[in-house]
Amino acid sequence: MKEVRVCVLRIEGTNCEDEMADAFSTVGAVPEKVHLKQMERNAPSGLARSLEDYDILALPGGFSAGDYVRAGAIFAARIRSLMGPQLKRFVESGKPVLGVCNGFQILVELGLLPAMEGAMSEVPTAALYTNDSGRFECRPTVLRNDDRGKCIFASEIPKGGLVMFPSAHAEGKLMSNDPDFVSKLEDNGQIVFRYVNPDGSKAVYPWNPNGSPSDIAGICNPAGNVMGMMPHPERVMTRFTRPDWTRNPGPEEGDGMMIFRSVMENLK
């Protein structure tokens, strides 16, 4: 099989690029942590990189540019000004883009999600806004796979199946101006993950950590190749990072493995 090259894009303040890269290595991809400045035209030779050379783009979590202005806004504005057209082509060609936590916020600020009209909107059409609690919420969350077969990052997770990924964010409430936003996402098959209570019933706080409408935790674009989610699958690649592994060892693999395996299967 051809080598699958992953660009894990970072700038100052991203802090989950190591786990993200490791997660892709675990499923056989070849990840590279690339600083945004390496994408600049005047980057020193040897360090210069181009988005076209990669098969997958991953935006890791963290606090890019200190979360100043708004979470993800500065990273998004810099990506747009440096390589907006290349990124749009990357997405339109069907290549996978994954954004986790701050990465999801960046995808929304970039207009790559929800992207109901075209691959990338000029201005954001949604926002990931301050949690209802007004606090940083950090704990395991249980997600149900509500993907209807579109999202290339969810195909290896049983439909309706539950996974446990940790959440750690202060701005995770998905918002839009459109009163029909959630039903449009639903109609387009863009809702990939919903927060649920551990027994699978409708989530109440703190199992929905941010107050997101319809308990939405992750969405994809209408084409299914761009996914953003607040919880962190890359933090649960082995049983040892499950919060209850000493009491309930479960399978050797962590739930997060399925996300990364899905995208690799879809690239075959």
Binding site: V69, R70, A73, I74, A77, E109, V123, P124, T125, A126, A127, Y129, M175, S176, N177
Partner: peptide, 10 residues
Amino acid sequence: CRKLLANPVI
């Protein structure tokens, strides 16, 4: 504001 400082949704 349009390019960075404001998100028109919120």
